[in-house]
Nucleic acid binder design. Structure first.
Lengths: 255, 255
DNA sequence: ACGCTCGTTCGGCATTACCGAATGGCTTTC
DNA sequence: GAAAGCCATTCGGTAATGCCGAACGAGCGT
């Protein structure tokens, strides 16, 4: 048997893995047999779990028969984000920023050194990005990630980099610790961070940090756009606008 | 022991109940002992489950120590709503309707005769409603609920009413089956539904149905506002605007 | 009409999750 | 400042419970 921490419940573990598998499937969902194969357990086991999850609305059955994530998760996700006080306060600010820039805007919070996006507002008529909410992103390839890293000590940054490396997503991705530290110094100096096609070809981001009344960094406001559509405004101009809205959110937090 | 269906997993059942309890708590979360008392199980049992859920990001620990819903649920909820093709298509339409009316707009889908709101866009500068996503609402007290009921046979409506009754939320709530059937006939005739302070004092809703290419009702577009702030526009005018946007969404579905 | 695959049910075995008591760290209270 | 309370956590033992595999029956596709 593989070593499993003592204080973990096998069936709950498997249930969470099932939800993860359904999350990674496309919108047509997965069949019971697919899930059984994916987890390496008997069909009947998966069946019992699915029915249990279904009773709580975490999973739904669609004609096929196939299974997809249920509307109960929409409810829990909505509540989870409203339980983060910052996310609720941020939405109006994100809306205003989306209006002002025409871009998709998001709020990231720092989760153990990684940016996690917890709220988003799509720009008016903008190309719909597949900007997943709630997933941890690479800290070195996103503007919000740089904001978060810039708040840590150099030692901690080195530690994180040592743990997860500096995944190269595009040609422009920062892949050396030296260049990363330089970049973080620049971020601190100018008060905003830029991701210039470092995560996705043709896509740029600009982000600025948000601090609470104790002056601790609690999150980052971020805008995302298509590079070829954004020739009019300079990075510095956009940085100032994002900075201004991030400050407005900070003010709401009592900064 | 209480009779429990054979094909249900106890620990997964309890895990789901724990998430539900955390969802109903305020943003400060619950302690381990609170959860144990709430479920009537040993602290150590709850502990093992919490750690398992935490490992998957479904639960997070905050200083206290207390536990709240985790960011993983934000991710799953976001994916769950994007796996509903209609929700993704609806968001731009909801945005446009929110702009046109200045009101909060939502999309409900029919879940077994009940309306479940799966997407929302807040109106510009509007009072922020606590409009929870993903929860089942009473079909007789919401405009979207009436749209859904109006699509069912009279026999099925009577069946549903017999099951869950007609909960009286305000003085204006429809509480008799006769008046409800009359109201549903009016909804069918005029093509939109109104909730005039029938769910919440001072709050009104207007909704219109959305049909797919097979002409099946798949959801309802709904607007919500404060009655005292909405004197300018008549219900009929608003109904026409909502109807128009619902049709625009139907067109996107290939209707 | 046949065969396949699907979800579903049902016993039986043993793995596993549950409990209760004991531990140590932390904040609170007098 | 010390002690008392509350907290999350660990650890065996027990039996309840979830897991499996095989058999059933419905629904498609051939």
């Amino acid at each position: 048997m593989t070593e499993r921490p003592r204080s973990r419940v096998q069936s709950v573990d498997r249930a969470a893995l099932m939800l993860g598998a359904l999350a990674e499937s496309d919108s047509s969902g997965l069949g019971l047999a697919d899930l059984a194969a994916h987890l390496g357990v008997a069909r009947s086991t998966v069946h019992a779990m699915l029915r249990t999850l279904e009773a709580h609305g975490l999973v739904a059955e669609v004609p096929g028969p196939r299974f997809v994530l249920g509307t109960g998760l929409i409810r829990l996700g909505d509540i989870a984000s409203s339980q983060l006080p910052i996310a609720d306060l941020a939405r109006p600010v994100l809306s205003a920023l989306a209006q002002a820039t025409g871009l998709t805007t998001r709020l990231a919070i720092a989760d153990d050194g990684f940016p996690v996006f917890v709220a988003k507002v799509d720009g008016p008529g903008a190309v719909r990005f597949t900007t997943p909410l709630g997933s941890r992103e690479s800290p070195n390839t996103s503007a919000a990630g740089k904001i978060i890293l810039a708040d840590l000590t150099e030692a901690r940054v080195r530690e994180l980099v040592h743990e997860v490396g500096l995944p190269k997503r595009t040609q422009r991705t920062i892949t050396t610790i030296t260049r990363l530290l330089d970049e973080l110094a620049r971020v601190r100096a100018q008060g905003y961070a830029v991701d210039d096609e470092e995560d996705l070809e043709g896509v740029f981001c600009v982000a600025a940090g948000v601090r609470d009344r104790a002056d601790r960094l609690v999150g980052a406001v971020s805008t995302t756009g298509i590079k070829s559509e954004q020739r009019a405004r300079s990075a510095a101009d956009l940085g100032a606008v994002v900075r201004e809205h991030a400050d407005r959110l900070a003010a709401r937090l009592g900064h």
